[in-house]
């Protein structure tokens, strides 16, 4: 009788350990799975580790720093019209495509050793979408170009001279750098005045004299 019970206990314990074993196989598998939790994604973003400014990127390009890898996440059509120097094109739609073996096709580009990958689009929304997905899938060292190409044009290609009254010496340093960058990327003539074409549109539209002038047309 007692022996019988002892056997029963062993059987029971074996069953328990088997169950545990199965669970152990199951759970770590989930953890190692290629996804990062939402909390972590948000944490990465919130600690300011998500953006590269246009100035930073311009400097890396001008230095010819091989650490930088630019990824254009817009459509192929937009990419072919204009792209940043040495950028590669991975449209957002294709970002998480997998090959036959189930590996991400862009894996080699997005998980490089010691590279900084900067996503860019026209604004930064599409780049942010790509960033979120990539971060979730544990691709590392991925960043968003702050403000995208629109901002690139405004800051690097057509920099605005700081206002004499409010500017700090730092602003002038930034401006000097941007002027040099503008030369490098577009070959700007030295006097890119803030009044020159389309670059300052947004600000002027908001603040300028506006509607007053021509009233009373009738």
């Amino acid at each position: 009788m007692a022996q019988n019970k002892q056997i029963k206990v062993y059987v029971f314990l074996t069953a328990v350990f088997m169950v545990l074993g199965i669970i152990m196989i199951f759970i770590p598998d989930k953890e190692v799975e290629k996804e990062v939790s939402p909390h972590v994604v948000i944490k990465i973003y919130n600690h300011g580790n998500a953006y590269y400014t246009t100035d930073q990127v311009a400097k890396l390009i001008m230095d010819g720093n091989p650490i930088l890898q630019l990824v254009d996440v817009r459509s192929e059509e937009e990419f072919s019209k204009f792209s940043l120097k040495n950028a590669i094109n991975i449209p957002l739609e294709e970002l998480i495509d997998k090959d036959k073996k189930g590996n991400y096709v862009w894996r080699d580009y997005l998980k490089p050793e010691k590279k900084i990958t900067v996503f860019y689009s026209n604004g930064d929304m599409t780049a942010a979408k790509a960033w979120t997905l990539a971060t979730r899938l544990r691709f590392e060292n991925i960043f968003i170009l702050d403000g995208g190409l629109n901002n690139w044009i405004e800051t690097i290609i057509k920099p605005v001279e700081p206002q004499a009254t409010t500017a700090t010496p730092e602003d002038y340093n930034v401006y000097q750098f941007r002027k040099a960058a503008s030369m490098y990327f577009g070959g700007a003539t030295a006097n890119v005045a803030p009044t020159s074409v389309k670059s300052t549109v947004k600000k002027t539209v908001v603040k300028k004299k506006k509607d007053v002038e021509e009233e009373g047309g009738c």
Partner: peptide, 15 residues
């Protein structure tokens, strides 16, 4: 008018 792109863009094509 300058060239449309800064440099010849290359599309990194895995396939």
């Amino acid at each position: 008018k300058a060239a449309a792109t800064e440099s010849a863009p290359k599309k990194a094509a895995p396939v």
